[in-house]
Every structure is written in C-alpha cells, then in structure tokens.
Design a protein around this nucleic acid. Structure first.
Lengths: 216, 216
DNA sequence: ATTGGCATTCTTGTATACAATACACTTGAC
DNA sequence: GTCAAGTGTATTGTATACAAGAATGCCAAT
C-alpha cells in the first residue's frame, strides 16, 4: 500500500465515481467505505475533502457527502470552458513553441493517425491525450498548463464516450492537422480558433448523444 | 463559533496567509495552530486539505505543510490566465448580456467613478470587484463564472497592492468605459480585447512593482 | 387516517490515543 | 576534529473514543 493512504483512497474513490459505481446523488458512507478499504474513517474523511474541492462530491454539513455528477447543462458549460482554455494554450503556444516540441507534436499526431488506421480507439485516445498535453505545456505558462490538465482530467470520462461515434476519429484527425499547421505557421489566432472548434465540437457531439439517450 | 470549525479554520488560515502572518516556506505547525484556535489537530488537518487544494500550502508527506506563495514568475502566469479568462467572460457576455444587467453594470461603473473622484480606494476596490463579478456572471456560463471567481479571489491580495499606484485608478476607469462600450455594442472581440488588456496591465504593473522592490 | 411530537438510533464532527517515520543530538571511531 | 551511526524526540498519519445533531420510527391525538 501507499505511504499516505488518504491520497490513495481519494484516487480510488475518484475512479469509482468515474466508473459509474457511484452515481449522482449517492451518499458516500464513511463507515462502509472505511471497512471496504480496510482503514478507519479518518483517511476516508480526508479523501472526501479533496474530492469536494475537485467538485466531484458535495459536502452538506452534518448530512454527509454526496456524489455530484454534472448534468447536461453544466457539462456543456465545462466543454465550452475547456474549448476556450485550449484556445488560449494554442494562441500562446503558437508564439512560444520550440522546434523540438513541434517535432514531438507531429510525432504524436502521426501516432494518432496510425491508431485511426488500425481503428485502435485506446491507442488513439492515449496519443490524442499526449497531443493535447503537449500543447498545454508549450503554452509556456505552467499555471495555465495545470489548469488545463485539471479540467481535461475532469472531462475525461465524458470525452471518452463520444470517441466511438462513427467517423469522429477521422474528423478529429483532420482538425489535428489544422492545429499543427497553425502552430507551424506560428499564427496565434488560427491556432486558437482551430483548437477551440476542435474541443467545442466534442461538447456538441456529447450533447447530441445525451439528447438522443435522454428520452429513452 | 461556527458549526463546522474545520471550514472556519480553513478560512482563518487563508486570511492569515494573505495578511502576511505566514510567509512563503513557513511550516504550519498542527499542534500550535490547534491550541491557538482552541481545537484538536483533526479540524486543523482538515483545513490543511482544503488549503492544499487551493494551492496556498503544499503538503510534503510525513514532513508537514508549508505555505506556498507564488513567486514573481508564477504570479505573472496567473495574471496572464486571469486576463484570458476575463477575455472569455467578456466575449461571451457581449453575446449574452441582458439589458437589465447592462444597466447594473453601468451603475457599478458610475460608483467606481465616484470613488475615483473621492480618491476612496476602498470603495473603488469594492465597486470594481462588483463590476468584474457582473461580467463573469453575464458570461451565461456558471462553470466559467465559478472558475473566474476562484482565480479572482486567489489574486486578490496582489491586485490590491497595485491599486495605490499613481494614476492607476484613473487609467482603470478609462478601460472600464471601453469595456462597457464593447458590451453595449455587443461586439465580442472588442470586449475580449479590452478586458484582456485591462487585466494584463494589472499583472505588468505588479511585475514592475515587484522588480523595483526586489533589489532592496 | 394523518399529522405532530418525542425518543431512539445512526451519522457526522471533534478529541484523544497510538503507530510509524523523520529529524536531531549525542557518542564513538578514525 | 570530523564524520557516521544509533538512539531519542518530535511530528505526522491513522485508529478509536466521545459528543452533538439529524433522520427515522413509534405513539398519541385530532
């Protein structure tokens, strides 16, 4: 086990919420979770603190903690913000990216391409993530990078779903090409726009997907 | 005292760090703070969790928690992000702001003007905050609003300092006018640019201030 | 039958006790 | 005299014990 169990438990709980074991509105029982993880309530409570700050759970005083999954509206809002954040990263990266990083970015993109050809969704997902993280990094603003990573992580489970939509991976690749081109050309506004659209479309796809599932 | 002392302690510690009682690198002693607040270590530790997630302190496992004030570089990065976030709020608000909110915004701005005429820095600070919060709100994106508020709060102690620079309030007012005009005109890009510059200049001013103080 | 009040029980929030690790100081050897 | 190793102390991390508030169920009254 880890040195600091409270942190490990926070991660595990996060996974459990992402995986759907706990859904919106569920109360997280301190005692049950404590015995489940084989620890006392103390580290479980410390984990709750962390989760509540990330927004995954909500603490009602003297009532307990409840998992709080974003609804369709909030999700759309989050994707909108993600799109804008990535646009900022792109705008700054276009001005600041190094030649070496540009090369690495192109490599990551080629790996994406290969994954598309092999219809390997997992590989695509992995390389796509690397692609985006590189752009965050090349914004040259560590604070921005951290914020982007935070939000990216938060949207992870929702982004994954819409990857399996027909033709999405191919379309996404075309968008990547445009993004790389903008960075090569060192045109900040083009990079911002292409990245914004690239992410915004994810939000919209997801929204459509939700809408088509809801009436059922 | 409050019902939930851990939260109250988190707030108090935040204030203590902002006020400068604890400076960068200081170790926060659980026992000392516990007896200082008249509680046990438990609520103090819970408060630490919160603070570490906001980035005000850093937890080294088995070593303790240390206050972590951003250095000049990180501060500049944070202001850069704040500028971009506000630009986004402005762009969206220009499209979505209601007539009523526009009126309220103009009122807040007039209060700012009065404060400038009276050389009332406190009043200016208060109304300026209201002005910006209104724009966050009128972005029509609650999630974005929350994020903007979070960062705004984080930068509070640093923004306050540079308000006392000569002529800053007057210049700031001119910028406010341009922002309001852009929102009235419903021109998203103009709103984005004016807001970005308005905030970015704060970061630069602060940076200059720091630079002029550092050699001492 | 439904509603209001009381009591019981369960859960959260805090305090204290215990365990384990890191730091400091001392002591001894080279 | 300096460095290293070991012991002791202090501090963190976890478990348990206790206190206070909230939820639930039961009983009575309308």
């Amino acid at each position: 086990m880890d040195i600091r169990r409270a942190d490990a438990i926070a991660d595990e709980l996060e996974q459990l919420i992402f995986s759907g074991e706990f859904v919106d509105g569920d109360r997280l029982d301190e005692n049950k979770l404590a015995s489940r993880f084989g620890v006392s309530r103390t580290p479980v409570r410390e984990a709750f603190q962390k989760l509540s700050l990330s927004g995954l759970v909500k603490q009602l005083p003297r009532r307990g903690v409840f998992v709080r999954q974003p609804g369709p509206v909030e999700l759309l809002e989050m994707f909108e913000v993600m799109a804008e954040i990535e646009a900022i990263c792109g705008r700054l990266a276009a001005k600041r990216i190094s030649e070496a990083a540009l090369k690495t970015l192109q490599e990551a993109n080629e790996e994406c391409q290969k994954a598309v050809e092999n219809s390997d969704a997992d590989a695509y997902y992995r390389e796509n993530e690397r692609f985006h993280h590189l752009i965050y990094q090349q914004s040259g603003n560590r604070f921005l990078e951290q914020e982007a990573l935070r939000l990216h992580k938060r949207l992870k489970p929702f982004r994954r779903i819409q990857l399996h939509l027909r033709g999405r991976m191919k379309q996404s690749m075309a968008e990547h090409k445009a993004i790389v081109q903008a960075l090569v050309d060192a045109s900040p506004e083009e990079a911002a726009i292409t990245l914004r659209d690239h992410v915004a479309v994810q939000g919209e796809k997801f929204h459509h997907l939700m809408a088509s599932l809801k009436p059922a």
